[in-house]
Amino acid sequence: MIEREQVLHVARLSRLKLSEEEVAVLERELSSILDHVDRLAEIDIEGVEPTSHVVPLENVLREDLPRPSLDRRRALEGAPDPYEGAFRVPSPQAEA
């Protein structure tokens, strides 16, 4: 079960603004999905290593040589608010 407070907490962690209706729907849907997912608790995982990647790979390295990277002008072309060669963002402090 997920409660409303948890939905609001996770939405805050996710930086997602949700409407009241979305909060109510997610409370119900996430609870229902987690009821299914909770079946994983039935499996005995004692001593089993986790898998994060399926292809056995180790230390994929290349020579550390300087090479051209994405041009700054091009990198800024898609930015909503480019300013003097940089990405501009609003102030972290809400204005009074």
Partner: peptide
């Protein structure tokens, strides 16, 4: 929104993502 940084993040993502993507972000973050 350009009010402040957190509001900008939250409103951009709240407006920009659809319901299934929000559901999975919420599930994954949880």
């Amino acid at each position: 929104s350009n009010a402040d940084l957190d509001s900008m993040y939250e409103e951009t993502r709240g407006e920009g993502f659809g319901p299934e993507v929000k559901r999975r972000i919420m599930l994954g973050t949880y």
